[in-house]
């Protein structure tokens, strides 16, 4: 009886698993069918070269003359070109094949050999920039948030009110507007000032990082505040009753415990930060989204590239969330 029951349960389970996969495939088929209706031609094979591509590099002779000798073999091969008393040697270490032989007369610019080199494509470059910008913003966001969170619960009105104003201002306006303020107002102002005093300008990238860091910092401030306040008052009292100063109690007792509670919401915040960094394309920073748009202008295959773009973001955010889960396990008290 129990066996029959279990069998029934299992077959129902697999039925619904089947429903799930059928649903997924139906959606894909629907999309494909719709694009076929409007004669969209999918060019998936175009995509890989925007992620990594093989660049053809030619080794050319700088002067004309006679190939006097080819010394060495394979990786050590060197082509020596002589013209009267002049002579030049070209190491062929990377060349796949040597296109000249001894005794050949060559003109300047003659291709001596060719090799191919793997290079990150525009999408991978964009992804790297997204990662770089996000990491900078995360580090500074944590710093701002830690200080902000502690200021937010301070009894000193100058600190406390500054923290409240900062958080409310940042959270109350759209990130895109903040990025424009950083780029079109603060960056132009500051770069002009730098010029007036004879310094070189700062790249737009850093204003983008600043915008993201300030934005995230406000949210981290609130997360840190909540984390600190969630630690029972008795912990501070116990630490103070042992003669620790306020900062000592904060450093040794409160913050380490608060950090553990802060970690999950912090991870969520940083995942949104990676996604929000896509707005930096608006101020000419070539991160992943902007890179995708450029790839589309070249390839004229928008459908493929937007899906690829989304998947590349997913790789970044998923890796981060895995890393945080690992840290959480490490920090957990058994």
């Amino acid at each position: 009886m129990a066996k029959l029951e279990e069998l029934r349960y299992r077959s129902a389970y697999f039925l619904w698993v089947g429903v799930f996969f059928i649903g997924v495939f139906a959606l894909i088929a629907l999309l494909y069918g719709a694009t076929a209706k409007i004669d969209y031609v999918w060019h998936w094979f175009d995509v890989p070269k925007y992620i990594v591509n093989q660049e053809r590099i030619e080794i050319t002779a700088g002067m004309g003359g006679e190939v006097a000798a080819i010394e060495g073999e394979g990786k050590d091969a060197v082509v020596i070109v002589k013209d009267g008393d002049d002579s030049e040697s070209y190491p062929m270490a990377e060349a796949e094949e040597i296109w000249v032989s001894k005794g050949d007369f060559i003109t300047p610019g003659k291709i001596l050999g060719v090799y191919h080199k793997w290079q990150p494509g525009i999408l991978l470059q964009g992804m790297w920039l997204t990662l770089k910008v996000s990491m900078y913003a995360i580090v500074f966001g944590i710093l701002i948030g830690m200080l902000g969170g502690i200021a937010r619960i301070s009894k000193n009105p100058a600190l406390k009110w500054s923290a409240i104003c900062y958080v409310e201002l940042i959270r109350g306006s759209p990130l895109l507007v903040q990025i424009f303020i950083w780029y079109f107002v603060l960056a132009t102002l500051f770069n002009r000032l730098l010029m007036v005093y004879g310094f070189s300008e700062i790249d737009a990238l850093y204003y983008g990082v600043a915008a993201l860091a300030c934005f995230t910092g406000a949210y981290v401030t609130e997360i840190v505040r909540a984390g600190i306040q969630s630690i029972h008052r008795g912990q501070t009292e116990a630490a103070r009753s042992l003669g620790m100063t306020g900062p000592q109690a904060m450093y040794y007792i409160i913050l380490p415990q608060a950090m553990r509670r802060i970690l999950p919401p912090l991870a969520g915040q940083f995942i949104s930060l990676i996604k929000d960094s896509s707005l930096l394309g608006m101020i000419a920073i070539r991160e992943l989204t902007k890179a995708t748009r450029e790839a589309i202008t070249i390839s004229l295959s928008p459908y493929e590239f937007w899906f690829v773009c989304a998947i590349l973001y997913l790789i970044l955010t998923f890796t981060l969330s895995m890393a945080v889960q690992y840290m959480e396990r490490k920090m957990a008290i058994q």
């Binding site: 912990q235 116990a238 007792i253």
Partner: peptide, 20 residues
């Protein structure tokens, strides 16, 4: 006050040990 507190031990109802 920190100097004085170091000379005065206190035991709480809810222990308040440092869990970490």
């Amino acid at each position: 006050i920190n100097k004085v507190r170091a000379e005065v031990g206190m035991v709480f109802q809810s222990f308040n040990l440092f869990p970490h």
